[in-house]
Simulated assay, not measured.
Amino acid sequence: MEKMIRLVFIKLPNGKTEEFDATQLSLETGEDVIVETEKGLVLGKVLSPPHEKEKRFFLKSPRKVTRKATAEDLEQFQGNQQLEKEAFQFCLQKIREKGLNMKLVKTEILLDRSKALFYFTSEKRIDFRELVRDLAAEFKMRIEMRQIGVRDEAKMVCGLGSCGRELCCAKFMNRFELVSVKMAKEQNLALNPTKISGVCGRLMCCLAYEFPTYVDLKKDLPKVGKHIMTPSGKGKVIRQNVLSQTVTVELEEGGEITIHASEL
């Protein structure tokens, strides 16, 4: 019998939802818990009761739920949120004083206050050693400066996309996938930067969602410009409607017809 592992969906402070090893803890929806992350211990909320999955499906063991959160943990978390605001303003002031060419995006304080992380964007490499010394002296904890890209910035700040929904990267994406202009072309989208770019200024991540479907559906359709034989005579394909699986053909004898791929 395959070895099973108890997993639970946890919503993290950054808004993301991830699966964690529930170990032997009895967890219920809505409970606050302390979980391990690559940064350290953070507070999370249980979204659904634990479920079992075969261990062989994991390339590496998932991170664990350390314990249930206590009243002290919740009080510490609220205090950290206020401290993050103060740290952000203090760091922003020091950046201006030192004339550093960097944009501060977010400050994060770990639950146990062992470390403070400052996320920033910059087009150039920044010497922030003096800034780190000032921050460490002020907050009496380890300081880590993390330079991020524009896509990571959008993920942290969050916002609404052109669809009117919360940004995918902030809501559920764990990593950024490769997105290319070819994906927009395959879906017959206008190659207008303002239409196919997200708030980060890069191509929208959602262009990759339906790309495989369009590629698969186009296999049965003749390409635009190809000369084909139809029940109404010979003609040239001038338009495709991928979703309805039809093509519009300009007939040699004059006129146009729209025909389904199954009739060719």
Rank of each mutant, 00 (worst) to 15 (best):
K45T: 15
G99K: 04
K115A: 06
F77E: 15
E54H: 11
E72P: 06
F57S: 09
E52T: 00
M102F: 05
D152G: 01
A87V: 00
R63N: 04
Q78C: 10
V242Q: 02
I148D: 05
V237Y: 04
V42P: 01
A184F: 10
Y214E: 08
G40E: 12
K68N: 13
L7A: 07
Q76N: 14
I196N: 03
T258I: 07
K236S: 04
P49L: 10
V181D: 00
K85P: 01
A170E: 03
L104H: 13
I257M: 07
I238P: 02
Q240P: 02
T23L: 13
F120L: 10
E28F: 12
M183Q: 09
K236A: 03
E186Q: 13
S232E: 14
Q89R: 15
F118N: 03
Q187F: 01
G198F: 14
G225D: 01
Q24F: 15
Q187G: 05
D21M: 11
L251C: 05
I196G: 03
D127I: 02
E52Q: 06
L110M: 15
G235M: 03
M204E: 00
R96L: 09
L264S: 01
G201Y: 00
K11S: 12
R151Q: 11
P231Y: 03
A154E: 02
K11Y: 04
E130V: 11
V249R: 01
T246N: 05
A137D: 09
F90L: 05
